[in-house]
């Protein structure tokens, strides 16, 4: 129950963990929240006053954040049971959902400490799908290929992926201990395959996505697109890569090495 003794105070229930190998535990904090407060400003308040609801002084809660305007992707956590960016989680809205704000680290990545997790798997996945345009170096070699506004619009929507991990946290097929590559990287493969020069590596990307843990491990639950904070059409990307892999597989069956 929220404490109503203090005006504009909300109860935070935080799932904490001191180190990767230690057991998690819960702590409650009562945090005053002026209008416009969000989860980050409340966590900052806890950092400055790390006292639990029952009056114990504890170590401040550790969490990841950087830009605080939902473009860096750092501050993902599970808030009131749902994965999202904590910077754009306004207390005024959360207070309508429940009496308390529950903060948990993402469950699909190893916990580093408290609300911080290790998402290096996501960045490694980007290497696996060769998420880059293979340019001939940085010297002045003229402009890039021209592009239709429609193609740019499609690519732009995909290019806003900030590797935050929401899509993977909500995905029932992406687990802490399996190999599924997940929506983010699949969508990036589509992004690069849609670029004139990026296409050169399309076969490599598709072959990577045809291995175990690749695109076919998607179970079409489509949670990814629901939780993506940037509204990236992830399920369209999965379908597009589905088509590309289908065509690629048939082509290589008939004309591959």
């Amino acid at each position: 129950m929220a404490t109503n003794t203090d005006q504009k105070t909300i109860r935070f229930k935080v799932k904490r963990q001191d180190a990767p190998q230690t057991a998690p535990y819960w702590q409650d904090f009562d945090v005053p929240h002026p209008p416009g407060a969000n989860v980050i400003s409340c966590l900052l308040h806890i950092a400055a006053n790390p006292v639990t609801a029952d009056g114990r002084t504890v170590a401040p809660v550790a969490w990841d954040c950087n830009c605080l305007e939902e473009v860096c992707g750092a501050c993902t956590m599970v808030i009131n049971g749902r994965v999202r960016q904590s910077c754009s989680a306004l207390i005024s809205e959360l207070a309508e959902e429940a009496a308390a704000v529950t903060l948990e680290p993402m469950t699909k990545f190893p916990v580093v400490r408290d609300l911080m997790v290790d998402r290096s798997r996501m960045f490694k996945n980007l290497i696996d799908i060769k998420a880059w345009v293979p340019i001939d170096g940085t010297h002045a070699l003229g402009p890039g290929p021209t592009e239709s506004p429609a193609n740019q619009d499609t690519r732009y929507a995909l290019s806003r992926c900030m590797t935050c991990g929401c899509c993977l946290e909500a995905c029932p097929q992406f687990l802490l201990d399996n190999h599924f590559i997940g929506a983010a990287a699949i969508s990036q493969a589509r992004y690069f395959n849609a670029h004139e020069t990026g296409k050169t590596l399309q076969d490599d990307r598709l072959e990577a996505l045809e291995t175990p843990g690749g695109v076919s491990d998607c179970g079409n639950a489509q949670n990814c697109v629901q939780v993506c904070p940037k509204d990236i059409p992830l399920t369209e990307s999965i379908a597009a890569i589905g088509r590309q892999t289908t065509v690629h597989a048939i082509k290589s069956f008939f004309s591959g090495k």
């Binding site: 580093v112 490694k124 175990p212």
Partner: peptide, 17 residues
């Protein structure tokens, strides 16, 4: 040592697959 990098299957070259 703290880096946890589960290799994605996409790159695993395990011969015993």
């Amino acid at each position: 040592m703290t880096e946890h990098t589960p290799s994605t299957a996409a790159s695993s070259g395990d011969p015993a697959t």
